[in-house]
Design a binder for these strands. Structure first.
Lengths: 342, 342
DNA sequence: GTTTAGCACTCATTTGAATAGAGTGCTAAC
DNA sequence: GTTAGCACTCTATTCAAATGAGTGCTAAAC
């Protein structure tokens, strides 16, 4: 689609612009050395590239900046995968070695590393429990009217919620029911719990216990996952130092969105595994028009999946970020996967 | 200490400056109506107030702005406690009525309300478990080497951490131990758990079980509270709209600090109950010299205590914020205290 | 003695014009 | 096909002048 020379020039412009955040002129490219043509020639090519939609010109007498399309071409065809620095690799190894017991700590830590290595904002989603299964269920009465329902998953995650006990329900009924549930539901995938509850357990309970309806209501409540996927942010203030967000208005739009965890969850979740790059207006959300979002997925014992992402200005160090995310997502899967001997 | 008239003038200046963020001149005060003197008279008093350290002058030909000391006097002697707007009161009632089951949800929600009502940044600390007691303890093996330790407190909070099982420890030993612990430790305050473990339970375990040391290590791990007090932030972007943080550098210092949860916990925690106001340099942390931090405490069933706070520029609507925090902290104590009938 | 009008003075901010400089597009020559 | 040269465009910088808000002081009025 683009000639060899056009590619080279586009590459040079994107590279320069990512470094400097200033429109790139024909002269400075000519001087770089890797494109050995005179400014005039380069100017001609630049005019063509602009016509094709890969470049933009802020005003007549300024250099060119890449358009979204230009970045896209750069990412798809040009961006050289930079090998990471040795010190960065060491951080990854540490992460894998640390054997942090709690999953949340691993994710949190990974987010911090990511933000400090890239100088952008990292957004991480805790593991999606969809694929995990039930390990243990328990109801612990606190007083006459309330109890804590505790659910432990096959990956060792613990979820709890407070439920109210229907008046008149006997303790023994409750205990019996819990025993029954553990016998019947252990190993059942989390997303099938409710269905099983109604299809199999229902009748059984009805035979043994009084207060059938109230009890079912209680159990239904218990199995209603209250928590959304947890969101971890790090390096949000890195946005401040980006010249494109000198404008407080734009900055606020983005930072405001970062406070909306449900929206973030939605934006980061995708069924696709692996690395994904969303450039500028490719992002569905209006607030991200000046941003690029790069995401990768990690897995937890091969069952639960989570997402790690980097948000930065469209003028982002794609090569570096993509490389980092790729390695880190693998490192995380390794750190989280090896937790249970097998 | 200050004459009637000086107080009036100081009050007027602080009021005006809080509204406008611009140095206040003698003329504009004279025109306000509540201080019926000519600009010249007011100028004389202002010069005195400056000499006393209550006012500052950015430069010779500008009006005056309050110094930290000026704000302090305003807060201690002048700030009129504004009654809240009816619509705000309604929000509080809603919070109390909602009966959100999880404590975290209540705290989170309160933070959101606080930030949106005040247009500042809210910082909330989840309940400090210091005063709660153990309700239930459980060890749930995940495989041969790891187990989940689950601790439920008297207020219904659930904590869990992953621990490793010492090789060779029999399942029955473990079960026996857990039963013993529940019998002996139920109702013991959380902060005394470890002491009791060593003083009372130790020998008992030594009699019954093998692997004494490993087992004690496991239990010690289980009782080591991993989580810090949880921090909830809301409205951090409200900092952006404050003119004093037009300077990105200052802004970044503050926002960076807001990402450091351990520091925040330290800054907000104090043994004192009730409302506290820290103005400008009264804050220990360097990053907060241009800020004021107002905090209040809430309680959870009278046992656990947490903190809610508002961070804003020193030029802050003290009256409104103090009033709001006072009411909200009560509303939270009510919402969280009434959870268990009795 | 207290208050106030009047006035000279200070200093940050605004305004506008001139200038500099970076970069382009086009034409003609190589 | 490539490049040197040049006129042209447009932003950013600089600098001086004007503006205006506000003060401090003095002397008069109350």
């Amino acid at each position: 689609m683009l000639s060899e020379r056009q590619s080279m020039i586009l590459n040079a412009i994107v590279d320069d612009y990512i470094r400097s955040a200033e429109p790139v002129g024909s002269r400075s490219i000519s001087k770089r050395g890797d494109v050995a043509f005179s400014p005039a020639t380069i100017r001609n090519e630049m005019a063509d590239l602009e016509e094709l939609g890969f470049l933009e010109q802020p005003h007549t007498s300024a250099g060119r900046i890449p358009s979204n399309r230009g970045y896209r071409y750069y990412v798809d065809h040009l961006a050289p995968l930079k090998p990471l620095k040795a010190e960065d690799l060491k951080l990854f190894k540490q992460l894998a070695a640390e054997k942090l017991s709690a999953v949340e700590e691993v994710v949190q830590h990974a987010g911090t590393i990511l933000a400090s290595m890239t100088n952008y904002t990292s957004i991480l989603l805790g593991p999606e429990m969809f694929n995990t299964s039930l390990r243990h269920f328990q109801l612990l009465p606190l007083n006459e009217t309330t109890a804590v329902a505790i659910i432990v998953t096959s990956t060792g995650e613990v979820e709890n919620r407070t439920v109210s006990i229907p008046p008149g329900l006997s303790v023994s009924d409750m205990e019996q029911t819990v025993t029954l549930l553990n016998a019947k539901l252990a190993g059942v995938p989390m997303h099938k719990l409710k269905a099983r509850l109604y299809s199999e357990i229902g009748q059984e309970i009805q035979r043994h216990a009084e207060h059938y309806e109230e009890l079912m209501k209680l159990l239904d409540d218990s199995f209603t996952s209250g928590k959304d996927q947890k969101v971890f942010l790090s390096g949000t203030t890195n946005m401040l130092i980006q010249p494109e967000f000198r404008d407080i208005g734009k900055l606020k739009t983005v930072l405001d969105l970062l406070e909306e965890t449900p929206t973030l969850t939605r934006l980061l979740n995708s069924d696709q595994k692996g690395i994904q790059v969303k450039i500028g207006s490719e992002n569905v959300h209006q607030a991200f028009v000046n941003c690029s979002l790069i995401t990768a997925t990690y897995s937890l014992d091969g069952e639960a999946f989570g997402t790690i992402g980097i948000l930065g200005p469209t003028r982002m160090e794609y090569a570096k970020v993509i490389g980092t995310l790729d390695l880190l997502s693998r490192a995380m899967s390794r750190a989280l996967g090896g937790r249970y001997g097998a």
